[in-house]
Amino acid sequence: MTDISPAALRGAVDLSSLRNRPTAPADGAQQPASSPEVGGFVVDVTDATFGQILELSKTVPVVVDLWAEWCGPCKQLSPILEKVVTELAGRVVLAKVDVDANPQLAQSFRAQSIPMVVALIGGQPVPMFTGAVPEEQVRQVFDQLLQVAAQNGVTGSVGGEQQPAEDADGADAEEPQEAPLPPLHAEAYAAIEKGDYATAIAAYEKALAENPRDEDARAGLGQVRLLDRVQGLDLQEARAAAAANPQDVQAQFAVADLDISGGHVDDAFGRLLDLFAVLPSAERAPVRERLVELFGLIGADDPRVTAARNRLSSLLF
């Protein structure tokens, strides 16, 4: 199951260009989430109206479903998302984005594979999952989302007023505030927003050197290293180079990175494990190190990681 952690994606998705765009809808355009149509809690949004969704996410968690009409898995997943959101009765809003009609949103979310589902909590993107997943897993991830939203003080709802919390004396409790980022994390986040991945990597590495148990720094480092590696890569060119040179480690790494960034986790792991299996023992170390790094990026509890780790162990011993 996906492990939802807002800190892991801080800076990996840049929505800043969408925050202050004009939000007055054109004639015939659908209204944003203040008056959604499906079940009261589902709305279609566009590049132009997405700023309102970002603002709404400061009150109620918003789940963004990136889809397209031609996408078969999208048609399997969307009804499940709508069902779960409707049952939550306003505690979550579902914002549907047609990636073909809204290329800026697709680019901002780095949607290389759809369906892609991302949440917004307080204007910050939070990864959920990519691809069609079963209803039980969707419900589990939504439960995690509501927990993270509550930890960040986002506990409102659509169609009802947010109730103030009260302490034991009956006085209104102070609204929870998100803890500030540690200095090195803040430095990395600022560098990522500028596209300066080298500085972000150095900041996260320094944070880990100071505290090897800093899991947020480890997750952030994995994210930004991946972003750094895939920038400028062309998927078709990378696949052609890998096919032409099956034992070229760097060529296989490039395709695996693109697969991971596009949500094709099993394909990436399978490619690297197949490479590990055919390489001489003296040349295997870099492949093992890359696999371990990607395992950390996906999450130790993910069943795809468990399966890949088991196969790696069998190849080692």
Rank of each mutant, 00 (worst) to 15 (best):
T2D: 13
P6H: 07
A7M: 13
L9E: 07
R10L: 10
A12K: 06
S17M: 05
R19G: 10
P22F: 03
A29T: 05
P32E: 12
P36L: 03
E37A: 11
V38S: 14
G39H: 06
V42K: 01
T46C: 11
L54K: 11
E55T: 15
V64S: 08
W67A: 00
W70Y: 14
W70P: 01
Q76A: 13
L77S: 04
S78E: 03
E82L: 12
E87W: 12
G90L: 13
R91N: 14
D100E: 12
P103D: 08
L105S: 01
A106F: 03
R110V: 00
S113L: 06
P115M: 10
P115R: 00
P125N: 01
P125D: 01
P127N: 01
V133M: 02
V138Y: 05
R139K: 14
Q140A: 15
D143K: 12
Q144Y: 09
L146I: 14
A149K: 12
Q151Y: 03
G153L: 11
V154T: 06
G159Q: 15
E161Y: 14
A165H: 10
A165S: 10
A171T: 06
A173H: 08
E174P: 07
E175G: 08
Q177V: 05
Q177Y: 10
A179C: 11
L184E: 00
H185I: 10
A191E: 07
K194R: 12
K194F: 03
T199H: 02
E205P: 04
A209G: 15
E210G: 08
N211E: 09
D216H: 13
A219Y: 00
G220R: 01
G222W: 01
R225A: 01
D228V: 01
D228W: 03
Q231G: 01
D234S: 09
L235Q: 12
L235E: 03
A238G: 08
R239Y: 10
A240W: 09
A241R: 07
A242M: 10
A243W: 07
N245Q: 15
V249P: 04
Q250T: 14
A251W: 02
D259Q: 10
S261D: 15
V265S: 00
D266S: 10
L272N: 06
D274K: 15
F276A: 04
A277P: 07
P280H: 06
S281W: 00
A282H: 07
R288T: 06
E293D: 11
E293G: 11
G296P: 10
I298W: 03
G299Y: 09
D301S: 14
P303R: 13
